[in-house]
Amino acid sequence: MKYAYYPGCSLGAAAREYDSSLRAVCQRLGIELAEIEDWNCCGATPATTLDPLLSLALAARDLATVERQGLAMMAPCPGCYKNLRKASLSLAKDEELRQRVNETLGGAKLQRSPEVRHPLDIIVNDVGLDNIPVEKPLQGLKVACYYGCAITRPRGGFDNPENPQSMDRLMETLGAEAVPFPYKTKCCGGAVFLPREELALELTAKILAKAKASGANCVAVGCPLCHLLLDMYQFKVEARAGMTFNLPILYFSQLMGLAMGVDEKELGLERLAVSPASLLREEWTQATA
C-alpha cells in the first residue's frame, strides 16, 4: 500500500504532531508514504477568494507531480484535501478548463487527475479496522469524534456529511468509547479565525461545551485548523465564554498511536496546549490496570 503524501503547510508547523503520529501509525500499518516532491501550498480559501483560476492552478501543479508518481494522494489536512480533491474532480471533468489551467503551468501538465484521499478513509477502508493491531486498548477514554467540515462536505466523499461514522468506528476499534456527539460536523470557524476571531471563538465554545455535555473526556480531530481552535485557543474560548473545559484535543492518529503502542515521542503529546497527561494517567491506565 503506497500513497503520495501531501503534508500541506500546517503539518510542518502548527500541526507537527499530526504529521509525526500519522507517519508512525502508517508505518506500523504497512502504508508507505512517498512525500510529493517540491509540493506547493494548495492555496486554501485565500487563493479562490482572489481568483478561482489561481486556486485550480496551484492545486494542478501538485496534482501533476502526483500523476507522475502514479499514486493516489493522501492529504491529512481537510482544507488541502477538499481543495485538491475538488480541483482534481473538476479538472478531470472539464477538458477546456484543464487546458486553461495547464497553460498557467510552467512544469509538468495535468493529463488525468489523480485520486485525492483523507487518511481516515485510507485507514478505515483500505487497511480495514480489523487489521489495526491494538496492543493497549483505550479503555476509559470517552471520545467525542469531531469531523468538522471538509472531511465530509460538500458531498460525494467517503463518509456521510450529516452523521459520519468512520472516526467513531475507529475509536471503538481502539477500545475507546465514542460518545454520541451531535456537533460532530459543526463548523469551528477555522477558515475565518484571523479576520473574524470573535465568530470563531463563539463557534468553538459551542463545540467544546457540547463535547463536555456529551460526557466526553477528550476530543478526536483530523484537521489542523479545528485542532488549533479547540486546543490552542481553548483558554481564550474559556475566558470569553466564562466556562472551564479542560478538554484534551488529540489527533485521531495520536490516539491510534497510543493504542498501537507507538513510541510516545513520535506522537508529540507534549505539543498539545491542553495536556492529556492526567487524562491518560487517571482514566486510561486505571481502566487497563
Partner: peptide
C-alpha cells in the same frame, strides 16, 4: 520552507490574471 519551484509558482500567479 522554500520550495525549489518558486519560480514556477510565481509564474502561475503571473499567468493567472488578477491573482
Amino acid at each position: 520552507d522554500l520550495i525549489k519551484g518558486r519560480r514556477e509558482v510565481r509564474e502561475i500567479f503571473d499567468r493567472v490574471e488578477g491573482g
